[in-house]
């Protein structure tokens, strides 16, 4: 196998959906037949195992690899439904200073021979954890929500990535938790406004949806349920990660289509809580 494409999913601000997006992009790529490894870069505050429903299967973590107790391939945990999706878990008891950028480079170099894609879930902030996460990445995906605090942090992170050698050719943007109705009423900045302000390529727009919370509750990535409307959006983003052109408008078009028929809508209106 050739060397993997290594992506880091980052944001600066916490709580914008990096972990959920990492899990779903990984699951989407795996469902397309690629060998995918997800790395939880959030040392000490791990969550990726929870979103993937693998929290009870973690025996060894990235710290065991760094300490030399286990080889990197021994500590990987395979997903229950997608056997070509693996997780390199983080440790709850460790802190970010126990891992260095050189450690990350070394780990990713070893993993690269076994996978088509490696996705690193970066922690919030711009400290050591962020530096570790970006150290070996070839491409950065910045996640932001349409609020000014997240956009400001995304801008700061873009600057830091550029200082670390990234360019507008290998930095992309995902706008998460968009509310199209608010954008239509001019009560929220649009993805195009954010893209123009940050001057980086937009590769995905994800609308605010209950489906995300429900999938996290079950520990099952949304892309594994083809009935979920958001799954097509993640599939489109992974196509773009593979350099296949799909217009961004396609994402919003799908999301604006009502999945319910007229009678289902009427039924819902009159439905009473039991």
């Amino acid at each position: 196998m050739k060397y993997a494409k290594v992506f880091v999913i980052t944001s600066g601000k916490g709580g914008v959906g990096k972990t959920t997006i990492t899990a779903n992009l990984g699951a989407s790529l795996a469902a397309k037949g690629f060998n995918v490894c997800l790395i939880d870069g959030d040392i000490g505050l791990k969550n990726l195992d929870l979103v993937l429903g693998l929290e009870n299967r973690i025996v060894y973590t990235i710290l065991d690899v760094i300490k030399g107790n286990r080889s990197v391939t021994e500590v990987l945990v395979k997903h229950k439904l997608l056997k070509n999706l693996s997780l390199l878990a983080s440790s709850q008891i460790a802190n970010k200073d126990m891992v260095s950028p050189e450690d990350m480079k070394d780990i990713i170099d070893k993993l690269s021979k076994h996978f088509h894609f490696i996705l690193i879930d970066s922690p919030a902030g711009i400290e050591r954890g962020f530096k570790n996460a970006i150290a070996a990445a070839q491409h950065a995906i910045i996640v932001t929500t349409p609020d000014l605090t997240a956009i400001s942090d995304a801008d700061r992170v873009t600057g830091l990535l550029e200082n670390s050698g990234f360019t507008d050719k290998n930095i992309s943007l995902i706008v998460n938790r968009l509310k199209p109705k608010m954008v239509k009423k001019n009560e929220m900045v649009s993805p195009e406004d954010i893209q123009n302000a940050l001057a980086i390529e937009l590769i995905g727009v994800i609308t605010d949806s209950e489906e995300i919370l429900l999938s996290t509750n079950e520990g099952k990535p949304i892309v594994l349920d083809s009935e979920k409307r958001l799954s097509i959006v993640f599939d489109n983003i992974t196509e773009r990660m593979n350099n296949n052109f799909i217009p961004i408008e396609e994402d919003l078009k799908k999301l604006n289509q009502s999945p319910e028929g007229f009678f289902a809508m009427i039924k819902k209106l009159f439905k009473r809580e039991e």
């Binding site: 000014l148 956009i151 400001s152 801008d155 873009t158 600057g159 929220m188 900045v189 406004d193 954010i194 302000a197 940050l198 001057a199």
Partner: peptide
């Protein structure tokens, strides 16, 4: 929000 965003974003 758009005006404020454009005032603080580097680009």
């Amino acid at each position: 929000a758009k005006e404020r965003m454009n005032s603080f974003v580097r680009g």
